[in-house]
Design a binder for these strands. Structure first.
Length: 529
RNA sequence: GACCCCAUCGUCUAGAGGCCUAGGACACCGGGUUUUCAUCCCGGUAACACGGGUUCGAAUCCCGUUGGGGUCGCCA
């Protein structure tokens, strides 16, 4: 059977990197397996799902090249199917209605009493649990409720679905059986009877568990007595996530569910739903969370973790895509910069890490810088130029000059946002950083040398790398400066800051007249102040 | 609190009992490119959370402790 996977976000805001990482892993898996990658928009939360959020989701997916193979399925279009499924479950006896907690009647899915019919359910063995004597044990259609005894002797509420307590016997302090579920189970399941056992001491029953194999985490299981029946249709007749999600997975014939760690607990419930709806249980893989700098999971409050923000800051989609694949996955060797094609051929779920990964912005910057350096010069220049749209200093900019600046700066750029710092190449004078001036331009001998350099450059017909270098060396030597000691002052005087490309190349690009003008301006301004 | 999951340099990771004196990358520090610098090159600091087992041998297997995370809704 061919692989079919889906990315199923709820469009309630901007997409953050944890989400999109799940999308990337799904996409990679589908492409690796020659399968199908689908998009499902879980827009049933009408309060928070907005057209703008959906548009931004689609936009971001396109930007990252996450192409999907069939038309997106909007969950709101499936409500009738969800309700029909609930009706079937009711009819089959796999669900019941409950008036508890809402305005009308909700539909509750029952963890099946005959749980063994579901693949993955296994007998664990006999269990005896001490319970708090002052809290009666109650048994009704919704399950068994009791209280454990805490270390301090307090009653701690606990309970689970009926199926979790097969062969349940409630014993009193003398060891006598006060209640036996087997005697009354038919009435309880039918909702025709409920029981409360006062002064209980122990619960005795056969524990069963439901398990599944997780492609990332291995074999996982959970005892049925810690699972509860759950609402699948609210009292206002709207389907709940669990039902909608499973129904849609069945509708879309999903074979592998790859999603965030936070869904592990849901899986135990979903397994029963798939079975009750007569569908095969899909394969599962749960991805570790991506955490922020504090080691906490990214929440939608972490404003800097939206995918759109990375685009705005000028990261290349290929670089972000590549970086995100490295969070919780590796090819097993030392390779890191991997093309999409390589990623597709290398990606397997068994190489996914099972512990959370922390985002490292600096490593992303480095990778992005590698991608930028590898870009064809013309494309880099075009993108960089586009970045400047709307900036005042870029109005009426000399395009030929910009091309030379881009060529000089490409290998050093980390993000397109860096381009905004290129202002000093344009205009007559740069903006001077006060701290830089104080540090490099304060000494009188420096200013004298800079003045001499200005005269020297002014006398040259045009500036060349070699010519500038020779001039700088001569002036430095003549004024008693060691090799290179004049370079930072020159940089500050002509660019206003302390970092940039090679200073000779920079002066050449600035040209004779502006280089001279800036040197003289810096000398005059600092002498005056 | 209960249940479940996780644990290698600061960070991302390699590591499926001997190849590990624990490898790579980012960051950091130092040096080089007989000049500056955000590029490039070379070098360095830096980790198996702790305690018990199992084994001739453990980062790798088991148990416990500690720490972190997830889940316990008529949210998704």
């Amino acid at each position: 059977m061919s692989v079919r996977v889906r990315f199923a976000p709820s469009p309630t805001g901007h997409v953050h990197i944890g989400n999109i990482r799940a999308a990337i892993f799904n996409w990679l898996f589908a492409r690796h397996e020659n399968g199908v990658f689908l998009l499902r928009v879980e827009d049933t939360d009408r309060e928070r799902s907005t057209p703008a959020a959906i548009a931004s989701l689609l936009d971001v997916m396109q930007w990252l090249g996450l192409d999907y193979d069939e038309a997106p399925l909007y969950q709101t279009s499936q409500v009738a199917a969800h309700l029909e499924a609930a009706r079937r479950l009711l009819e089959q006896g796999d669900a019941y209605t409950s008036a508890k907690g809402g305005d009308g009647e909700a539909i509750v899915f029952r963890i099946p009493w005959e749980a063994e019919r579901v693949p993955g359910v296994a007998l664990v063995g006999p269990v005896e649990t001490p319970v708090h004597p002052e809290t009666p044990v109650t048994i009704d259609r919704a399950g068994v409720a009791y209280a454990l005894v805490s270390a301090k002797g307090k009653a701690v509420p606990a309970g689970g679905c009926l199926a979790g307590f097969r062969d349940l016997e409630v014993l009193d302090a003398d060891g006598r059986v006060r209640f036996r579920l087997a005697d009354v189970v038919d009435q309880v399941l039918a909702g025709a009877a409920s029981f409360a056992v006062e002064q209980p001491a122990r619960l005795r029953y056969t524990r069963r568990q439901v398990g599944y194999h997780d492609a990332v985490k291995g074999d996982l299981a959970k005892p049925l007595d810690s699972l509860r029946d759950f609402v699948i249709v609210r009292s206002d007749r709207t389907p709940v996530f669990h039902l909608a999600n499973v129904c849609d997975d069945i509708t879309q014939h999903i074979t592998h569910i790859i999603r965030g760690d936070d869904h592990v607990e849901n899986t135990y419930r979903h397994v029963f739903l798939f079975a009750a709806l007569g569908a095969p249980i899909p394969h599962y893989a749960h991805l570790p969370m991506i955490v922020n700098r504090e080691g906490k999971p990214y929440s939608k409050r972490d404003g800097d973790a939206f995918v759109g923000d990375f685009r705005d800051k000028g990261y290349l989609p290929e670089a972000l895509f590549n970086y995100l694949t490295l969070l919780g996955w590796s090819p097993g060797d030392d390779r890191e910069k991997l093309s999409r094609r390589e990623l597709v051929s290398l990606f397997t779920l068994d190489r996914v890490q099972s512990s959370p990964a922390q985002m490292d912005a600096r490593k992303l910057d480095n990778l992005n810088g590698q991608y930028m350096a590898a870009l064809p010069a013309a494309r880099f220049a075009a993108e960089a130029r586009a970045r400047l749209r709307g900036l005042r200093w870029a109005d009426g900019l000399d395009e030929a000059l910009f091309g030379r600046v881009a060529a000089l700066m490409q290998s050093r750029a980390k993000r397109y946002a860096d381009v905004e710092g290129w202002a000093y190449f344009f205009g007559e004078l740069p903006e001077y950083e006060a701290a830089a001036c104080a540090k490099f331009l304060a000494a009188a001998p420096v200013r004298a040398a800079l003045g001499a350099l200005a005269d020297r450059l002014d006398a040259m017909p045009e500036l060349t790398d070699a010519g500038v270098e020779a001039a700088v060396r001569e002036v430095a030597a003549a004024h008693g400066f060691a090799e290179g000691k004049l370079n930072q002052p020159i940089r500050v005087a002509t660019t206003g800051c302390t970092i940039g490309a090679g200073i000779y190349e920079t002066l050449v690009i600035l040209g004779r007249s502006r280089s001279v003008k800036r040197l003289r301006h810096a000398v005059a301004a600092t002498s005056a102040g």
